[in-house]
Design a binder for these strands. Structure first.
Lengths: 225, 225
DNA sequence: GCAAATATAATAGTAATACTATCAATGTGT
DNA sequence: ACACATTGATAGTATTACTATTATATTTGC
């Protein structure tokens, strides 16, 4: 995907990191390689020590960027949602018709991820996999309420809010726009998970099926003018 | 809720435990107190050592019932799904009309949990909380495929399959019955989670809202005869 | 009622994890 | 050349997630 402006950066809440990984070479390698590694061995098996070995750096150096691996996961997933939000806004901004706009929005968030060459050290396809397999671990914790207060989940919440508005623009009478919005976002991740591990629990096996499923669901539920 | 037969037991895949906790007093205390404790301090903070202290028993004794805390979580959540499945089948079995049947089924799985006096050592309300907050951690692991093969998730899968069938009975043309079934089950847990921690991301704030939301969603999507 | 079997408790030990602290080496700007 | 920031290396700690062994109750079978 081509970008209008030379360098778009995804802005992440600076409380998530100790030192901005985008600000140095080591920081970028931490991000790049942690994506490969978490994708490979899973978040549970992932440690800063292993990451240090892989990038030829030291455990203690990684701690200068992130307090712990939980924060690193928050960083990666925030980045993903920020990236997806950018695509969402970019693709839907110019659409006047509210139904078409919502349709496009659903497509953006339910379609399979493709690599974006604009961010060379981030593999979006693998990052999407991480989001599918690990995102809920980032909020299913005892610290959720305080971390939410700190604003660690703002991007995700803003995305749901955008959907909320698009849904209400299509049908202002609909009583559950936020619930529907969150069902689309979480539900889409879940359908991709099921496809890989519980294939009998989903009908979304082919490319495009998830988009069709959620589009069908939403447009049967809403009353379009 | 009253039970027809004096002692219904929820049958759990015996590969999940080393020794059946239902078979002894200590076993039941492990289940009872682990529910209280996981609910209280979360699955991450929960250890067999702490549990041992709380029940006045020894860490090593708990290991004779469960290989590790992951297996214990699988046991608890399997029990929950088995319990819910029993209620589902019990409540919908006698309903002839397929739409009414599905409506009832949605109600059963989306309504707030109430305590069931038939299982004295299990607090279903807290267990439901655990399922909301921890269930996905039981399958979002690198071992998912082998554990699935071992049948650790059969009850959950059977529940989705039951929904699948009820959906297809209402609308045999509908193309995504499994996806819709899994959306209802996972989505319902998620709406309850949002209500407590991200209230702006859901519209299900009052008792009964989740049932209304999903009933509305499903019956707008399906073509009823 | 007693021996045998079984269940539970107590203790110790291990490798790995998730850090913190300290200090040395290297590079960068002025 | 000197200050300062960055990174690397090493060591150390508390906790976790176990395993192993032995001791002590408790149950049961005869």
């Amino acid at each position: 995907m081509e970008r209008l402006f030379g360098s778009v950066t995804i802005k992440i809440n600076d409380k998530i990191y100790v030192k901005d990984p985008q600000s140095s070479d080591l920081g970028k390698r931490i991000i790049e390689q942690s994506i490969l590694m978490i994708n490979d061995i899973g978040f549970e098996g992932f440690t800063f020590k292993k990451l240090g070995n892989q990038i030829g750096s030291n455990e203690s150096s990684i701690y200068r960027y992130f307090e712990n691996k939980h924060k690193l996961l928050l960083y990666l997933t925030s980045w993903y949602w920020g990236w997806l939000e950018y695509q969402l806004v970019f693709a839907t901004n110019s659409i006047a018709d509210s139904s078409e706009k919502l349709k496009k929005a659903i497509e953006i968030v339910t379609r399979p991820t493709v690599e974006d060459s604009a961010f060379s050290y981030i593999n979006e396809v693998l990052l999407n996999n991480i989001v599918i397999n690990e995102y809920s671990k980032s909020y299913l914790t005892k610290e959720i309420d305080s971390e939410n207060k700190e604003g660690y989940f703002v991007i995700y919440k803003r995305m749901i809010e955008r959907f909320n508005e698009m849904i209400s623009a299509v049908d202002s009478e609909y009583k559950y726009p936020s619930s529907l919005a969150s069902t689309i976002l979480e539900g889409s991740l879940h359908q991709y998970f099921l496809k890989d591990h519980f294939p009998t629990l989903t009908d979304c096996h082919e490319k495009g099926d998830a988009t069709k499923y959620f589009t069908d669901l939403v447009f049967h539920t809403l009353r379009t003018k």
